[in-house]
Design a protein around this nucleic acid. Structure first.
Lengths: 113, 113
DNA sequence: TGCAGTACTCACCAAAAGGTAAGTAATGGC
DNA sequence: GCCATTACTTACCTTTTGGTGAGTACTGCA
């Protein structure tokens, strides 16, 4: 879903193309309080594989949502943070997060999970 | 993505489980002005297959997002509309749609589509 | 009799997303 | 010399998602 998908039929379609998938919303959420290192993100997003994390971060970077900063040290330190565009996207996701919070029990019940 | 996936790590995760995928956001959008027939939806969502449309509608129905009403006529008439929960979800999606609208050109440019 | 229109349903296939496990590069400290 | 740490990278596989095309049930109407 993070893959290319072009001409969008509406704004929602475009936004979903950028933030869709299993991990991207969670990654954005993790970054909403400031920069995070690769390893920090991996530990926070329990269950994500390194491959997935990198892949999603690269796509978000390509879409101008996150900024990647490499500190040339050993061991290496790479920090990811939201760009301004990313921060605005995160803000636009807040109501959806609230909705989910509010209806989580209902959804869980309906799906039997 | 519409498939079962639980326990959610946060509200956003739960919301994405309900509204994720290629078509669901667009279906919700189509319903935001009122009830629509199956055929109307198929024509509006250009490119969707009948199988996908039904599948997504069934999942949304199971999640309590849309209501399905069958009118016993010939030829048959089935109308889909948002439940109250669905309407609130749609509302929560508005900022995301606005964000997409605003950044669509940027995204298209970055992806070369 | 048979065709039109509507809303599905099914079997099968292709593509995309996601997961696993192993390997790499760089260097400071023991 | 060798191990630890960090941030990847690669190859391979499974699961999920999405697409195609044909078929079904119902009944009014020509």
């Amino acid at each position: 879903m993070g893959g290319k998908r072009g001409p969008f039929s509406c704004g929602l379609d475009a936004a979903v193309a950028v933030v869709g998938g299993k991990w991207k919303p969670l990654i954005l959420w993790e970054l909403h309080e400031g920069a995070r290192r690769f390893g920090e993100l991996r530990r926070s997003l329990s269950g994500i594989s390194e491959k997935m994390l990198i892949q999603q971060l690269r796509e978000l970077e390509a879409d101008g949502i996150v900024h990647r900063e490499v500190h040339r040290e050993v061991p290496p330190r790479v920090e990811y943070s939201l760009t301004e565009t990313g921060a605005s996207l995160n803000k636009a996701l807040l109501p959806l997060g609230d909705w989910g919070e509010e209806h989580m029990d209902h959804i869980r019940a309906v799906r039997g999970v």
